[in-house]
Amino acid sequence: MSDVDRLFRTYNTALVRYLTRRLGDRDWAEEVAQETFLRALRQESLTNERAWLFAVATNLVRDEARKASRQRQHLALLAEEERENVVEPQETTLERAQEAALARKAVDALAERDRLALLMREEGLDYLEIAEALELSAGSVGTTLSRARRRLVESYEALQKEREQREKNAAS
């Protein structure tokens, strides 16, 4: 097995999940992950491969986001058409979709650095790797994560209350 095969097999699942959570689109996440591995292929050696892969994937997302800003209007129209054609799989219940929508809103409400640190930690990166990928000091990762977790939960909780209130109002 070549080295890139090993990298792919070792990190692809975690990287795609990280990117999916970050982007909200699995196709896009897989594209970015593949591009990340292609770039890894061009490297002679990687000292801390996991931190490197997550850092490069994060930077690629930023680049993509800039491009996307120019194409956003066009994509919004396409997405609107696409939504009309999408057939949800049976197991994607309304509750799950609502849960995912709330989670997405709560995650988007986080500051960028907090969000990335939390998503990386969830994929098993240790504090040193997160610090390297996000150019933070290792000592500040704990504080960043504690803030991110608290805000995520509080934000989710607030959104959930809002939704419940809306449902109550609609029912009455």
Partner: peptide, 9 residues
């Protein structure tokens, strides 16, 4: 967040 269908902008 993992319950995300592909192809969503």
């Amino acid at each position: 967040l993992d319950n995300v269908p592909a192809g969503v902008t």
